[in-house]
Amino acid sequence: MDAFTTLKAVAVPIDQANVDTDQIIPARFLGRTRDRQVEGFFHDLRLDPNGRPREGVTLNNPAYKGAKIMVGNTNFACGSSRENAVTTMVDNGFRSFIAPSFGDIFFNNCFQNGCLPIRLPAERVARIRVILHELPGAEIAIDLAKQTVTGPDGKTDSFEVDPFRKEMLLKGADEVKITLGYESDIKRFEDKQKQEMPWL
């Protein structure tokens, strides 16, 4: 997994609440190999049924080209557990998401792909989205070690992140490898369970 340390990049705002992972990548792209899922990225939000770019859609505005940060709204990326929602974001350049709250499964999936989901207060996130609309192409700076986000207005907020997840991201650690280091604990658990729950 790629490490995540600091990121200073263009940020794109997505205003709607409850953006579901079906919007991030519609289900019909899921059966494909990863390299052919890239175009699924917000496909139906970006393009009309004839494949033409929809007017007035922020994601189609070239001023946000090269964005690596997405600033969403409440319950961002809720719904389906499809990890493709994270990988298609990664394959379209995104590494961090800022929102007041996230769908739990997407939130967990981010850490599996070297991405950092950041929860900030709803008012602050709303303010950042407004600025990003007013100044398309404006940047946000994130420092994971210091746990800070500096908005396009220069204001810095600190954010919470689980120490375990932080450490994994900073090192780009392999989670399976870490878990295998606990082999004796897992074995002990299994031996005990075999005695206690013989029907399993």
């Binding site: 557990s81 499809r82 990890e83 493709n84 994270v86 499964i105 967990n108 999936n109 599996q112 792909n113 989670e175 399976v176 878990t179």
Partner: peptide
């Protein structure tokens, strides 16, 4: 869970 966690 997501696909990476399935592998895990």
């Amino acid at each position: 869970i997501g696909s990476s966690e399935v592998t895990h």
